[in-house]
Simulated scan of single mutants.
Amino acid sequence: MKAKAAKIGGDIDLGTIVQMPLSDVDTVKVDGKVLTLVVVEKVGQGRHNPSQYRLACREGPIKGLYHRSYLTPLPDATKELMGLDTIFETWKGKAELSVREAARAMSMVGGQGMRDVDGKRQFCGCRKGSCMTNKCVCFQAKRLCGSRCHGGHNSKCKNNTND
């Protein structure tokens, strides 16, 4: 079984763009279900020790190492095309992110759960109005309102992805 898996997968080179699936609890409905990352380091190459890969998104490296079976290489994508060329060069020394933090950083609406606004975790909670003025915390932070913001109590919200 290991030999068959090795033939199918193969090694991934440094600088290759890969996608890694996300768990549903790490994403919001409007965001993608995969993270697009760049391979910044290959660890453990050997006969009985399969390679594992350190990955990075625009914000920094992801915690932990990942086996080839969790990754899908994108052969036609380049670091420059995906905007990952800077992090490929500067990932060392940056704080490592969890998968959920990376998903939040790449999210259109600020990730799962509440927003980070000025260091405080909050959501707008607007009960009326269109959420298209600076009175709305989400609009002010240039983010879309998520399902947790109003809990379905503000039918006038226009700052969401349903429009």
Rank of each mutant, 00 (worst) to 15 (best):
R115Y: 07
K94H: 05
K128R: 09
D85R: 04
D118G: 06
K94Q: 14
L84Y: 01
R100N: 11
K63I: 14
G125M: 13
T78G: 08
L81M: 14
A103W: 01
K63R: 11
L97T: 04
H67Q: 10
R68P: 02
I87H: 05
M82P: 05
P61C: 10
K92W: 00
Y70H: 12
M108L: 15
G111E: 02
R68I: 10
T86S: 12
K63A: 08
G113A: 01
R127T: 13
T72F: 09
L81Q: 15
F88Y: 08
Q112E: 07
T90M: 04
R68S: 14
L97Q: 08
D118P: 07
D116W: 09
R100Y: 04
V99K: 09
S107T: 03
A95L: 11
T90Q: 11
G60Q: 06
A103H: 02
R54Y: 07
L97N: 05
F88N: 06
C57W: 00
R115I: 04
R115Q: 09
K92G: 08
G125T: 08
R100G: 15
D76Y: 13
A105D: 08
M106I: 04
E80S: 12
I62P: 00
K94G: 03
M108C: 14
G110D: 04
P61F: 02
R121K: 15
A77W: 00
K63S: 10
T90S: 11
Q122E: 15
Q112A: 14
Q122G: 12
C124Q: 07
A103L: 06
E59I: 00
L81P: 00
C126H: 09
R127L: 13
R121D: 09
Y70L: 14
G119V: 12
L97D: 08
L74P: 02
V117K: 03
C57L: 01
A56E: 01
C124D: 12
G125C: 13
R58W: 01
R68D: 06
C124F: 03
R68M: 12
K79D: 01
A77L: 07
Y53R: 07
I87K: 03
E59A: 14
K92M: 10
E59S: 12
T86H: 03
R115L: 10
F88C: 01
D118T: 12
C124N: 13
S98D: 12
K128P: 00
A105C: 12
G125Q: 14
L55Q: 02
F88G: 06
K79H: 01
G111L: 04
W91L: 03
F123H: 13
T78H: 02
I62G: 04
V117W: 05
Y53M: 03
A102Y: 03
E96C: 12
K120D: 11
Q122K: 13
G113W: 04
F123D: 15
V99H: 02
L84Q: 02
P61T: 09
G125E: 14
V109K: 07
L84E: 09
D76Q: 15
T78V: 10
G111F: 01
G119A: 10
V117G: 10
R104D: 11
T90L: 06
S69H: 15
Y70T: 14
E80R: 09
K120W: 13
D116H: 05
G60P: 00
A105W: 00
